[in-house]
Design a protein around this nucleic acid. Structure first.
Lengths: 144, 144
DNA sequence: CGATAAATTGAAATCCGTTTTCAAAATCGT
DNA sequence: ACGATTTTGAAAACGGATTTCAATTTATCG
């Protein structure tokens, strides 16, 4: 996991950006968090420990993470942008419970392969994809 | 294609809503359009022929379409909501060219099947899904 | 170590698409 | 045609993302 930090620092110097205490704090907090937090939620979380850091800075820094490749932006269609730590180059997809909001990650090489075939058939070169399955998780099926 | 119109009219009476000329105009224009237009674009398009109809009405009517099942909302993560005519119960997915914005629809029963298996494995019941492949279409690969 | 240029910060303002408000107009049932 | 109810369009409000700007911090270099 050191890799992410290095990658970020390298990106900063490559772009002649400055290494600030805020950026480091946000980076550490970001790497520590597991779930797919919206900018807002992440900010609120962070503010508990670091009340001085403003929303704008959090927002800008998350964008930086995304630019340098250590974060991916997600959009589950609820109007909130979400960020997650990108683990190496493995793409993964999401299973979202529409009731409790739980998000489970998965990946399926077979589906990926089929996607490539579809792209070929339409003469597309795929750069990225998103696959989200919406439904009810076990718990929520029970209470429904 | 008469079905959509009937379905909408039925929905209106079921909900004790009124059948207005605006709604009929919007319905016809909506069914005629092929692509995945954003509310904004659809409104601009419509305004050429019907300058009297306001954005709010278009927006509300598209929502109605969505509620009664003749339209589906799409969100390709560009911050604009898009609506498309829902053809019967067949779900389809999208291939989006990130350069020119072209959108191609496809469906793949194999992928659907794999999705169900994944859901089962995680004890989910799937209600819906979205799969979008982003890349460059043939034309844009050439000019890139 | 300073001095200086350049980048960053936080608060507030702005942006931009969506959604709501409200008074006037249209619709439907009788 | 009447009256209750819904709908309409313009404009305002909303919500989240993004930008602005003056003050502060950082990196670099003598």
């Amino acid at each position: 996991m050191k890799k992410h930090e290095e990658q970020f620092l390298e990106y900063l110097s490559r772009k002649k950006l400055k290494n600030t205490s805020q950026r480091m704090i946000i980076l550490k907090a970001f790497l520590r968090q597991k779930s797919h937090l919206s900018t807002e939620d992440f900010y609120l979380q962070l503010r508990k420990k670091h009340p001085g850091i403003g929303y704008a800075t959090v927002h800008r820094t998350l964008k930086l993470f995304s630019e340098c490749g250590i974060a991916s932006e997600r959009n589950f269609g609820d109007g909130q942008m979400r960020f997650e730590v990108s683990l190496d180059n493995e793409h993964h997809d999401h299973l979202v419970c529409t009731d409790c909001g739980r998000i489970i990650e998965f990946e399926d090489p077979q589906i990926e392969k089929l996607q490539l075939e579809i792209a070929q058939k339409h003469d597309f070169v795929i750069k990225d994809h998103r696959l989200e399955l919406y439904g009810l998780c076990g718990d929520c099926q029970a209470t429904a």
